[in-house]
Design a protein around this nucleic acid. Structure first.
Lengths: 150, 150
DNA sequence: TTGACAAATAGGTATTAATCCTATTTAATA
DNA sequence: TATTAAATAGGATTAATACCTATTTGTCAA
């Protein structure tokens, strides 16, 4: 039994050709693709596969924590008036984002390969979890995005 | 001349009552609000202000780097098959996200106040900038989101 | 102070991403 | 192989965002 089959069985998910194809497509990608990109790619092998199935399947995978949603994405755009060096904590329950500072982190040198090859214009540590108010009342919002837990 | 007026003048922007109100509303907020939230709030003082104006104004402010867009948000949702500890570099030009590892960062203790009061389920450093391929050809996509530069 | 002009706005329309709805199909189980 | 719950396709809906254009308004120079 392959790994994907095992994962589905562990979570009571049926093993469908569509699911296997979505999983394989994402696993083989280094692009951090969108549902739409995966859908377009799979249309070659599954001419009738729907975008909804692809999106729903990806979200299912994120909920059972076999893949992740890239942080923040898929949510309405939010703005930040604070231009000082700071970092973000995202509460998965109430969607609050609060700022924090971390002088140690600001000092931390970045990997040499990146500083050598790329131009860096911004740096932010993104923590996810449950804030002080919400830690007792988890899953109020059944977060899909930017979630480790579900 | 107040700070907002100064910033607008520096960038050749006209000082309009709408802009001043949007700027003040965001500056006074700790909520990392969306355009829609700011729009609703401003309707009390500007009964005719349009959502487009609020959104456009916020994006203008982000372009001149007096505010920021919260990382990732506003873009179509993208997925990540990599469940190991890793971090993300976002290229502002080609929209590539690539993974990198940083053992030092993984070791770094987080601020005690956060670990004491919150439950942390995820940790990711998000770097923005221009990747090796794009550093010569900046601004190909005129990034709005997650941008320091414009 | 006023006139000219470019820039910004309002409000309607269009587009895009994401989700919902429901009839049909399918995988799992006995 | 029959049953049943789960999953899918495909169309419809919603929500966020961007576009379009006539009108208004800051700005600047006379």
């Amino acid at each position: 039994m392959d790994r994907f089959t095992q994962l589905c069985k562990n979570h009571g998910l049926k093993i469908t050709p569509q699911r296997a194809a979505v999983y394989a497509a994402l696993k083989n990608s280094k692009e951090h693709p969108s549902a739409d990109q995966i859908h377009k790619q799979l249309l070659h092998s599954f001419p009738n596969i729907s975008l909804d199935t692809v999106n729903r399947t990806l979200i299912t995978f994120a909920r059972i924590q076999i893949i992740d949603v890239v942080e923040g994405q898929g949510d309405p755009r939010r703005f930040d008036p604070n231009r000082e060096d700071h970092h973000h904590f995202y509460c998965l329950s109430c969607n609050t984002i609060f700022d924090f500072h971390d002088p140690d982190l600001e000092q931390l040198p970045l990997p040499e390969e990146i500083t050598r090859t790329c131009t860096i214009t911004g740096k932010r540590l993104c923590l996810t979890g449950y804030c002080e108010d919400c830690r007792q009342h988890k899953q109020k919002h059944q977060p899909i995005n930017f979630c480790k837990p579900y």
